[in-house]
Structures are given as C-alpha cells and as structure tokens.
Simulated scan of single mutants.
Amino acid sequence: MSQKIRIAIQKSGRLNEESLQLLKDCGVSIDNGKDQLKATARNFPLEVLYLRNGDIPQYLRDGVVDIAILGENTLIEKGKDLPILERLGFSKCKVSLAIPKGQKYDSVKDLEGKRIATSYPNTVKEYLASKGVTADLHIINGSVEIAPSIGLADAICDIVSSGSTLFKNNLKEVEQMLTSEAVLTVSPSITEQRQQILNTLKFRMESVLKGRNFKYVLLNIRNEKLDKIIDILPGMKSPTVLPLAESGWSSVHSVVDKNKFWDIIEELKAEGAEGILVCPIEKMVS
C-alpha cells in the first residue's frame, strides 16, 4: 500500500497513552520523539497526528486526518455529524453538572437562570432545553472547577472521572448528563484506498478489544460432573474437554466474559472444579 492512513490522537494525557497502547497491541510500531506533533508507523501504513481533542472533529471534516480516537463527549459536543465506528472501552468518564457543596439542590429546575461555567456549551444547552431550563452559560477552556469559588458562576459542567477534582474544589455532582469513553471515528472524505487500510486496522482493534473482554479458563473436573460444568461455561461454541492421565478426570478449557468472571468461578468451585487456571487473552480473532 503506497498511501498512509492519517489518525488523530489527543496530544497528551490518559487518552493519548491508552490510544497509543491500543495501536501497539494491534502490532503498530510508532516512532515517538519528544514533543513531536507527527509520527509515522514503522510497520503499518499509518501516520499519527497529535492534536487538541476539541480540534479533531474539524480536522476530520476538512479531510486533514482520515480517522481519530477521541472522547465520545467531544464528539457529542463538536462532532455529532461524525460516526462512531468502534467503542474502545477506555478513558471512561461522565459529563456532569456540579454546584458548591453547601448549596441546596432538589432538581435541575434549581439551575433556572443560574450562571454555569463549562467547556461543553452545546451539551449543556441541549440537556437543559430537554428539561425546560434556561441558564446563562460562561464558556471557559480550562479549569472550570474554580469558577464558583471566584464568583464567576453558580454551577459548572465538566468531565468527572473519580470525582476527586470536584471534592478538592468543594463541589458536588448533581446531574449526570452523559457517559463517555474513547471512540474511533472517520472522516466523511476518506478515500477508498485509505478505507481499505482502515478496515485492516479496525479488524485488529476488534480482535484486541474482544480479547480484553474475556479470560481463558482451564480446570480439572471428575467426569461425573462434566455435564454440570459444561452448562456453566459458555465458551465460544462449547468448552474444550480433554481426558487427563488420571482415570475418571477431564480438563475443561473455555473463555469467560470478564464481567461475569467471578460469579462463574464461584459456580465452578461449588460443582467441584479443581486446579482452576485463569489466563489473559491477548487477542481474539473471529
């Protein structure tokens, strides 16, 4: 392939690190120099542009980049016309409204006519309009958490991950407007040749992400309990069963959804499973 696909990634922070880790897990080796704004993959037709998160939707529309990994919250705020190709499962957060801790709050109606500081004016306007509330928005690019303490606003709208930033600034979360995670999106003007490269990269991403969502489980069980164990374990089609050297015993291999993992392990133990071994799955190719 003579052409390279151009991907936009946030310049710094957690989203940057986890995006680059995903590409690495997809077998894409990127030469990253200090403070570089652009880098090229050594072993895949891909070029990385490091951009401000809020600028990425316009770069996609203009065809400067072909694809991007960015926060869904940014797509909702600035790129609703751009499609989500893949939810990537990392950099999860909420976009919420918060007010000073000592302030009484009963419902979103309490924000009527109040001053709200935010970097997400479109999201706030749409949310408040859906609740029949009108407020005075102050657009701030940066640390909005200090706005109430300096008298600039009565409330804020911002990203909430752990809630520690709100706590430090004597604020409390009162309305969760949306949840967000990293997503893969694409330019409307991507060429056919670059679309083919995207299809290859997307296939790799899907295999990596699927692997992250499952665990590989091996266990030993007496043959008379095999049917019960097979009922518990889902597997891709069905569990793999192999006879052990010791008569009357079998080894059972399967994959388990990580979100149901501990419940399934408890069931397996209750049915007499022994020597349970759990392994991470690097990739899962369908």
Rank of each mutant, 00 (worst) to 15 (best):
V144E: 06
Q195G: 15
P234Q: 10
V217N: 08
Y216R: 10
M177E: 07
P243C: 05
L137W: 01
F214G: 01
I190A: 02
I221L: 05
L226G: 03
A147Q: 11
I139H: 14
K225M: 12
K237F: 15
A155T: 05
T179W: 00
K202W: 12
S180A: 15
E192V: 13
E175L: 01
G132K: 03
A153H: 02
P243V: 03
V183K: 08
L171H: 08
S130D: 01
I190N: 04
I232Y: 04
G235M: 01
G132L: 02
R204L: 09
G142P: 12
K202A: 09
L166V: 06
A135P: 11
Q193P: 06
D158P: 02
N169A: 06
N141F: 14
I159S: 04
V144I: 07
I197F: 05
I139A: 09
E173D: 13
S130M: 01
L137F: 08
L242W: 09
D154K: 07
Q176Y: 00
S143C: 06
K228Y: 07
E145I: 00
E181D: 09
V174C: 04
I140T: 09
K215Y: 08
L137D: 11
S143Q: 14
V241G: 09
S164L: 10
D136A: 08
T191Q: 10
G248R: 05
I139D: 11
A182C: 08
N170M: 05
Q176M: 12
T179N: 13
G142V: 02
T179F: 02
G132N: 08
K228N: 14
L226P: 05
K131Q: 15
D158H: 13
Q195A: 12
V217A: 09
S143L: 07
E173C: 12
D136Q: 14
I139N: 11
I159F: 01
L233A: 14
T240R: 11
R204C: 03
I140Q: 13
M177A: 01
V160I: 14
I140V: 15
E224Y: 15
V183Q: 07
F214D: 03
M205H: 04
V133T: 02
T165C: 00
V241L: 00
F167K: 13
D227G: 15
L178I: 00
D227Y: 08
V133R: 05
E175P: 09
I156T: 11
G132Y: 04
S180K: 01
G142A: 10
K225E: 15
G132W: 05
I190C: 02
Q176L: 00
T134A: 13
G132I: 01
I140G: 10
A245C: 03
P243F: 04
S238Q: 12
K172H: 11
L171D: 10
N220C: 11
I190V: 07
L209R: 06
C157N: 04
F214S: 01
E173F: 05
L219E: 11
E175K: 02
K131T: 01
S207R: 04
V133Q: 06
F214H: 13
L201M: 10
G163D: 02
S207C: 13
I229G: 03
I150Q: 06
S207K: 12
V208Y: 02
L184D: 03
L233M: 13
A147K: 05
S189R: 12
I159A: 05
